[in-house]
Amino acid sequence: TIDEIIKALEQAVKDNKPIQVGNYTVTSADEAEKLAKKLKKEY
Rank of each mutant, 00 (worst) to 15 (best):
D3G: 09
I6V: 06
L9E: 03
A29T: 07
L9M: 06
Q20K: 13
K37V: 10
T27I: 11
I19S: 03
A29Y: 05
K38L: 12
K40S: 08
L9F: 01
D3E: 14
K41I: 12
A8V: 08
K14S: 09
D30Q: 12
D30F: 11
E42R: 09
T1N: 10
D30W: 10
K38C: 15
K38D: 09
G22E: 07
Q11G: 05
E42Y: 10
K17C: 06
K14L: 09
S28Y: 03
D3N: 09
K7T: 07
I19C: 13
D15C: 08
K41T: 13
V26Y: 03
D15N: 09
K34Y: 10
A36G: 04
V21P: 01
N23K: 07
D30I: 12
L35W: 03
P18H: 05
E33A: 12
D3W: 15
Q11I: 05
G22W: 04
D3T: 12
K34T: 11
A12W: 15
K14T: 07
E42H: 06
Y24A: 13
Y43R: 12
I5F: 04
D30M: 11
D15E: 13
P18R: 05
L35S: 00
A12N: 03
A12F: 15
D30S: 10
D15W: 03
V26H: 01
A29W: 07
K41V: 11
A32K: 03
N16T: 04
K7Y: 06
V21R: 00
T1G: 09
E42M: 14
A8L: 13
K14F: 07
S28P: 00
T25F: 15
N23S: 11
I2H: 05
D30R: 06
E4C: 14
E31R: 00
A29D: 04
K38N: 05
P18K: 05
A12R: 02
G22C: 15
G22L: 06
E33C: 14
A12C: 12
A36T: 07
K38Q: 13
K7V: 07
Y24M: 15
E31H: 02
Y43S: 11
L35A: 01
I2A: 04
N16V: 02
Y43F: 13
D15P: 01
L39W: 00
E42C: 15
K37N: 14
L35I: 07
D15I: 04
K34S: 11
L9Q: 01
A12V: 11
G22R: 01
I19Q: 03
Y43C: 15
E31W: 03
K37T: 14
K38A: 11
V21E: 08
